[in-house]
Design a protein around this nucleic acid. Structure first.
Lengths: 253, 253
DNA sequence: GATTTTTATATGTATATACATTAAAAGAAA
DNA sequence: TTTCTTTTAATGTATATACATATAAAAATC
């Protein structure tokens, strides 16, 4: 039986639905083995005929599954040699989701955060962070430093519109970071990102523990819900520690 | 014969390579009809059996082509009714469109570009620009500098997969920039962006006329069409001159 | 030992066939 | 008409088979 197929893994992610086809079943199993790390990049996965025998299907069925995995980029196929798990082009920090805690944990680092500042703010200030064109509504201003292990990972500066999210007024952000809390309060309907590079200023260098003249990746996001602007936030990342991955594909995939 | 298949269209884009398989041939024809607008969204494309008869292949072959088009999101299939050209997907992002000439003109600046380098490239090189997981396919490597007025605006380094875009082999990029040309050749179905900040290296500083230790915004993009990877490109922007704007709205809307 | 030729093997493409599933359309009953 | 049932046409999945193609590895030759 060649190797362990690990069909029934405890940490199996994509459980095949009840009425799954053989194709889907096999596809799911292989996918699981790859994403779980059971079959690491470079690993030679079972030959078509082995798969066919193991699942008691025809070679054509196994072939179709492997072909699909190959066009999806998960495996690479070589004649006479077999099929191999491809080097991952994975990660994924899709722009719109962007939960920093998840991101840190996906790097296998411990996550914690620290609130650096939290106050009400009525007039726009010189830091460029703006909520609406009108800019006259009062807002909560929070500065939050996110850590991966003991290292600063990302600096978050955020304005929360008190008109749209009045419950932010008395909110205590010591136990839940503002971004995470907001998601639980308000569903956004539109977002706008502005992404640019800059040399870290003194405050950023200081908080993020960066050497002078470091490049810094800045992501500014404004979010609206149906009733108006919800929040404006600026994330500053040390450039060498991070990149943003955004993937666009047809809905089906 | 049902309808015009428009196999021999004058503005046919993706010329099927000489030794193309039937699968590729049929796929290419249908793709052309869709992207050229010959078959608009909602148009009912020929049934499997009609395609099979027209190309003199078995239904299985036609079925596989249509299945691939469906998973790529170009068509939608309905039992008993047939297969229909899908509605164009949600815009999702300014990111993928990204025509530099438009961008420059929107700043009210004169646009021109200069090809710095253009050659064939077989093996992956050390600059990190990669096309496919396999990485063994040969590609065209083009370096193009874009100007806004007299100032360098953006540095473009691009790999074009000769397997997917064979007509790039003899292409002369002195009159049309590679990015613009590619859009006219191949419709992408998936894209992946990686955005990060860095300190400009010597080549970038030199070409973009930047002072030393400048921050630089880098956007790397890979695009695929149904038949595989199309192009990998890296744009380097002087940070102080540019930002990326990306807008997202819920898929439903 | 180095080079060329052969062979074995895994993938790649295509066929003909079978039956399942789904939903539009047509027909029958209320 | 309206509702229910049956038919039918299209896709969906899977099979067994065939031969083509590329290539790693073994064998034969130099």
């Amino acid at each position: 039986m060649t190797k362990e197929f690990a069909q029934t893994k405890e940490k199996s992610r994509k459980t095949a639905p009840a009425g799954a086809t053989l194709h889907q079943k096999i596809l799911g199993d292989i996918e699981n083995n790859i994403v779980s790390g059971e079959w690491p990049p470079g690993y030679r996965i079972p030959f078509e005929v082995e798969l066919a025998k193991h699942y008691n299907v025809s070679r054509m069925t196994a072939n179709k599954v492997l072909t699909q995995l190959a066009t999806a980029g998960l495996i690479e196929r070589r004649k006479k040699s077999g099929s191999f798990v491809a080097q991952p082009r994975n990660q994924a920090a899709i722009l719109e989701v962007y939960d920093i805690e998840d991101e840190v944990r996906s790097l296998n680092k411990a996550y914690h955060f620290r609130i650096e500042e939290c106050r009400e703010r009525r007039a726009p200030e010189s830091d460029g962070l703006r909520l609406s064109v009108a800019g006259k509504e009062s807002a909560i201003y929070v500065v939050c430093l996110h850590f991966a292990g003991t290292q600063p990972f990302c600096l978050e500066e955020r304005l929360i519109n008190l008109k749209t999210v009045p419950q932010a007024e008395d909110m205590d952000f010591s136990t839940i970071p503002p971004g995470k809390w907001l998601i639980s309060q308000i569903p956004w309907t539109a977002a706008e990102h502005r992404i640019f590079a800059t040399i870290a200023d003194e405050r950023r260098s200081d908080l993020l523990k960066l050497p002078p003249n470091s490049a810094c990746l800045v992501v500014e996001r404004k979010t609206w819900d149906v009733s108006g602007p919800v929040t404006a936030v600026r994330f500053s990342y040390p450039s060498d520690k991070h990149a943003i991955i955004a993937r666009f594909a047809p809905a089906s995939a």
